[in-house]
Structure formats: structure tokens, C-alpha cells
Amino acid sequence: MAEKKEYFRWVESTYVNPEMDWRKADVISAGIDVGSVSSQMVVLCDGQIYAYSNTRSGSSSPKSAKNAMSLCLKDTPGLTFDNINYLIGTGYGRVNIPFAHKAITEISCHALGANFMYGPTVRTVLDMGGQDCKTIHIDEKGKCLTFLMNDKCAAGTGRGMEVFAEMLKVPVTDIGDMSLDVAEEPEAVSSTCVVFAKSEATGLLKSGWSKNMVLAAYCKAMATRILELLTRIGVEKDFAITGGIAKNKGIVKRIEKLIGVEALTPKYDTQIAGALGAAMFANAIYKKQSKKLSAA
């Protein structure tokens, strides 16, 4: 029997810097971000990215954290958990990571992670995660100055995109490009609520709309919804997007158009921002503690 195609699947990724030798590092720090939809781990050697993983979240937070860790340490020659000096958990499952030394919220971590990923000029971060969206103002050091969060509903989030992918039988990673491949930009679907948008989309398909047009209408609705959060906080340049939806060009381009500001181009997997920030905090906190110890 042919395996059922799962359209919501996105690419899980791992990375190891081949030029680095972790044995030469003074401090090895790590961050694990357990989100509702995806989990990541980042390992830093003296503050530089050595390895990371990005995977789907499992049934429980401890399991997801473990998965992210075994994936991350799969191709790191000889490196095990015992070699990591300090590990910080973040994300929605942060308090349920048994082997973390400390938990820090995804808000502080995304702020710091975005600062590393995009450089010190970033002032406004939009994180579009699996189940919520947040906008964060940060300073040149990546410290969070203010933030807004929207939750309670899957609209405008990764989970919503996955549901749509399944419904239209379109791989979730193709949605962005397809939604931009339309002769004319359609009106947004009137509701961003996933349940209502789904039935609205079914109606549009029946009345002869192409899948691309329906996707365009949905992406537009999501972008408009996210605009609320951005307008309320005020977009200061530079502007950067983190999280899984940063990979969806259909949403990013539409947001850029709505606010009249272009987002910086990512150099890394945008989904690791939270874990990266956590690993940076781990590095800093570990150094601070050992300084205190050696002074005592």
C-alpha cells in the first residue's frame, strides 16, 4: 500500500560546522526550544554556532527535547550531553525539559537570537511560530524592550498553515510560492479563523477558483491579521522575521508590502532563533557563574 502523503510536513534540518572542533572550546552551551509544533536545539562553542537541529515536536515536552538533542548530537563527533556546560530551555515546553539548568521565555530568547542571526541593527522582530505570533522591540544588544503577543487561536500561525496544506493537498513548503503565482491579487478571505477560512476556501474552490488564488487569499488574510500586531507595536527598522512562517514567501512578501518595510534576509534556519537565544543566554550565564566561583 502506498504511504499516505502528508502535506503538512516541512523539512527537518540539522547542521554541524565542519570547521570547528568542540574539544577546543572553553565553554559549550546549548539551548532547546520546545514549541507546540516544532523543537530545536542549538549548541554553541564559545558563543559561536557549532551545531543545531530542527524537528517536529512529539507527544510530550521531555520527549521533544530529547529528540531535538539526539538529532543535534548525531553528527557531532564524540560530543554528548555531559560535555555541555550549561543548557537553557525555552518555548512553550520550557519548564518540562528535565535536563535544562534553567528556563527563559521564548520572548527574551527570540530577541537575543534575532540579534545574533540578523545583527545589532534589528529593532523589530516578528516571530511567527506554530501556535502564536509575537512582535518584539529590541535594542542593539538584543534585549527585549517591549513585546506583544497574540494567541488563543491558530490563525496566522504555523499550525493554521499545516491545516490548509492538508486540506488543499499542497505541500506546506510550496504554499508561499504558489500564492504569489497569481495573475491578480484576490481579496483576502474574510475570516482568519482556521475553521471558517477552511469552509470559505472550499466554497471558493467549488466556484472555480484555482488553488493558487485560494492560497493567495488566505495568505493575504493572515498577513493582514499579523499587521495588527505590528501596527500596535510600531515597526522600527531594521525589521526581521523569525519562526517557521518566515520561510513562507507568500506571507512575508505581503507583510512587507502592507508595512512598506522589507525584512532582512535570514542567514540561518529561521526556526532556530529561540534555541539560539537560549544557548547565548546559557553561554553568558555560565561564564558569569564561573567568574563568581573563581573569584570566591
Binding site: I104, L145, M280, A284, I285, K288
Partner: peptide
């Protein structure tokens, strides 16, 4: 954290 997480990065 905004009030108390003071670390030198």
C-alpha cells in the same frame, strides 16, 4: 526577565 535578566552577552 526584562527587569532582571542582566547578563553580559
Amino acid at each position: 526577565e526584562m527587569l532582571s535578566l542582566e547578563v553580559e552577552i
